[in-house]
Design a protein around this nucleic acid. Structure first.
Length: 409
RNA sequence: CGGGGCGUAGCGUAGUUUGGUUUAGCGCGUCUGCUUUGGGAGCAGAAGGUCGGUGGUUCAAAUCCACUCGCCCCGACCA
């Protein structure tokens, strides 16, 4: 992508509406723009990151045997009446009527709808287990939107739902998802903590939360410095009896055993070998996709701007072209890299060198290559690693093969 | 929804306390021309504002009053 032709517009100063680091940087670097409080549009840079996050999610969900579908954002209110959650979620739901007076809502979540879909197609124990997922926009009428994408009225979530014949089956499905989640969060480049909720004595609500430590966190976790374990309450460490240290965490993922709550309420039933009608034993598994984007931005930046982990970065490389005479060569290098699946933002704008350097740091692609004097004199480029500022000289060929190796696999 | 703060050009702001030298100023960005290109560049020109909105007070309102809309932060609530 040529910078001069891209829809990338950075700002020297952060908009006043932003308070936290991630929000400031995402706005300033041109990843997001605010439409209204709690409502954001993803600009091309932000959308590329979002798609990379989604790609990682899809990879591991598919690997775990989950199948992607796409439910509706617009939902009839009557499916919610079956579970009574039309009342529970009344304050948070955007509800309205169409011109035929049909009562609708913008889905705040999709347990009801997936259960309706499952009961329409799954009739036999032979069709189980089954796990479905989607990456969908959710709508919640937040009383107080906050921290940009962190808490917004419209946000993107990956939600998966498993259907099993019994608790043993659910345990297996759940375990698979847990494994997938660990891989997903690792690939996000996030230093995450899995917080385990109490598994109720009733065999009920097993759940795990995927948390990342961040200043804008809305949950408090308590860490034992000795055992390096995290707990949800302030009590002293159950293992070593030492004092716990509190810190703020953001919840990015949540896996949860639902049991038969929805299948019973909505008659999600199947026949077993004996001809008995039994309710699906369900699990649900969420990742706040747009929140992940914010969380990465929040925990990975420096004074100069964002620092994207390789797997989610908008581009793999920013190629700064300082002299117009190198423009063609630069685009050639970019073409070769693109052919290898390495994405390049070629900054060939007619701007002062400092502008290009600063924008490259602000946008935060993992590698920054500079084509300038050294290229004129002896065909060499400087390649800088955004995260640690290490810089090395390469020829065009060695740069290409170096990046090829870096991005192999 | 309680508490606090803020709305002046695309972004950041001065001016508001004490109404009038304000045809509302500045920085960045934008446009035109020339120069410049290894660290937010120089010179010369230019465009862009119903001072969030409505109503009021006044000879006179960005400035005072009332209402209203919007945004941010703290809390409650939540992924």
């Amino acid at each position: 992508m040529k910078y001069s032709e891209s829809f990338i517009y950075t700002q020297r100063e952060a908009p006043k509406i932003a308070e936290c680091q991630s929000h400031k940087l995402l706005l300033r670097a041109g990843f997001l723009t605010m439409v209204s409080s709690g409502i954001y549009a993803y600009l091309p840079l932000g959308y590329r990151v979002l798609n990379n996050i989604n790609r990682i999610i899809r990879k591991y969900m598919d690997k775990a045997g989950a199948q992607e579908l796409f439910m509706s954002a617009l939902q009839p209110i009557d499916i919610w009446q079956k579970t009574g959650r039309d009342k529970d979620l009344k304050d948070v739901m955007f509800t309205f009527e169409d011109r035929k007076k049909r009562k609708l809502c913008l889905g705040p979540t999709h347990e009801e709808e997936i259960t309706e879909i499952a009961r329409r197609f799954l009739f036999s124990h032979k069709q189980l287990p089954c796990t479905l997922y989607q990456i969908q926009t959710k709508f919640r009428d937040e009383p107080r939107p906050r921290f940009g994408l962190m808490r917004s009225c419209e946000f993107i979530m990956k939600d998966a739902y498993s259907f099993d014949r019994d608790q043993a089956g659910l345990d297996l499905s759940y375990e698979k998802m847990l494994t997938a989640y660990k891989n997903i969060f690792r690939d996000f480049g996030l230093d995450f903590v899995i917080s385990e909720a109490d598994s109720g004595a009733m065999g009920g609500s097993v759940s795990h939360e995927f948390m990342v430590e961040a200043a804008i966190g809305e949950d408090m976790l308590y860490r034992c410095p000795k055992e390096n374990k995290f707990y949800k309450d302030t009590r002293i460490c159950p293992v070593c009896k030492g004092k716990l240290k509190e810190s703020k965490f953001v919840e990015l993922g949540h896996v949860f055993q639902l049991g038969t709550k929805y299948s019973l309420a909505q008659e999600g039933l199947f026949l077993d070998e004996n001809g008995s009608r039994l309710p699906f034993v369900m699990g649900c598994y969420g990742i706040g996709v747009s929140r992940v984007l914010s969380a990465i931005a929040e925990v990975s930046s420096d004074k100069k701007g964002l620092i994207w982990p390789k797997q989610v970065a908008p581009y793999d490389l920013t190629l700064i072209v300082l002299a117009d005479e190198h423009r063609i060569s630069a685009l050639n290098i970019a073409d070769k890299l693109n052919d290898l699946g390495i994405s390049v933002l070629v900054d060939e704008r007619n701007e002062a060198a400092g502008v290009k350097f600063n924008d490259a740091y602000l946008i935060g692609n993992p590698y920054i290559a500079v084509m300038g004097k050294k290229y004129s004199s002896h065909k060499s480029l400087d390649l800088e690693v955004r995260s640690n500022k290490e810089s090395k000289e390469f020829t065009a060929e060695s740069l290409i093969s170096f990046l090829k190796d870096e991005y192999a696999g």
